[in-house]
Amino acid sequence: MELSNNTILITGGTSGFGYEFASRLIALGNTVIITGRSVQKLQETKQKLPAVHIIQSDVSKPDDIIKLHEQVITQFPNLNILINNAGEMRKLILHENHTPDDITREIEINLMGPIRMVQQFLPHLKKQKSAAIMNVTSGIALMPFPISPVYGASKSGLRSYTKSLRVQLKHTNVKVFDLVAPGSSTPLNEKFMDSKDFNSSLVVTPEKIIEAAIKGLQKDKYEIYPGLAKVMHVMSRLAPGFLLSQAAKMGAEEMAGK
């Protein structure tokens, strides 16, 4: 896929992968729009990346997605690439008390958000000469991650949805990509880094992950596995029990209620 002279919408673009995507894609000669929940963070991002266009929007809110669609299609009618990047990851101890709304928050952001975004923008994307959707999933989509059970479920669901979406759009002009991201030094993972079981040597920088994503897009590589995600992909097939046993070590005392 040609990665210049496109108009690209990135959700969750104020930090981590979203910010790195925006920076790289602007440098390649694209028009880039980012969304985020915080107006302040959007404005700070605009100061660092003057060429970026910012829109306040929350992917967990269906009304926000409808309004975002109307604004983007009006202001940027050449939109042809959607990157569903916004996400949230939490430690959740399931035998503690959680309200019904709170326990499913990651489902709303990480799974329902991208599904609704695709459904809202797909008719427009199909009208473009060349278009693409990239969903950012996770290496955790390949295995359970007990300390973050709802996040893992949301990313597994998004990966399954992405595969089905690719099949259904096979005979259209819309290419569907899956960035299976390994653990990275982004705000998403900060809450896990103080764990005694956290291995910082396995963390990949956002720059390296997005570099792999850019190359994958350019080569029409529909499933992109940067760094450790390649190993996890193989191990999820050959030794899923071993992967789960290793993942279960993270936060084992917390999960046991100690």
Rank of each mutant, 00 (worst) to 15 (best):
M1Q: 09
N5F: 02
T7P: 01
T7R: 02
I8D: 10
I10D: 07
T11Q: 14
G13V: 03
S15L: 01
F17T: 02
F17G: 00
G18S: 07
Y19T: 00
E20G: 00
S23T: 05
L25P: 02
L28E: 12
N30L: 01
T31L: 00
I33H: 00
I34N: 04
K41R: 15
L42H: 04
P50N: 10
A51M: 13
H53I: 13
Q56I: 00
Q56N: 02
P62G: 06
D63N: 15
D64C: 11
D64G: 06
H69E: 15
H69Y: 15
E70I: 01
Q71W: 00
Q71E: 08
V72P: 00
V72M: 01
T74H: 12
Q75Y: 12
L79T: 07
N80Q: 09
I83D: 15
I83G: 03
I83C: 03
N85I: 09
N85G: 02
G87S: 01
E88G: 09
M89Q: 10
L92I: 06
L94Y: 08
H98E: 11
I103V: 12
R105D: 07
E106I: 04
L111M: 04
L111G: 12
L111H: 08
G113S: 08
I115L: 13
R116S: 13
R116H: 06
M117F: 05
V118I: 12
Q119V: 01
F121H: 04
L125A: 03
K126N: 08
K129L: 12
A131M: 01
V136Q: 07
T137I: 15
I140E: 05
I147Y: 08
R159P: 00
Y161R: 00
R166C: 03
Q168Y: 07
Q168I: 03
H171Q: 06
H171P: 00
K175Y: 03
V176I: 10
D178V: 11
L188M: 14
K191D: 09
D194F: 06
F198I: 04
F198S: 12
N199L: 05
S200K: 12
V204Y: 04
T205D: 05
A213C: 04
G216C: 12
G216P: 05
K219W: 01
K219H: 08
K219V: 00
K221I: 06
K221S: 11
I224V: 10
A229H: 05
K230N: 08
V231T: 08
M232E: 04
H233D: 05
V234L: 08
M235Y: 14
R237M: 03
A239N: 08
G241M: 11
L244F: 09
K249S: 14
K249Y: 10
A252W: 04
A252T: 14
A256I: 06
G257C: 03
K258Y: 07
K258L: 15
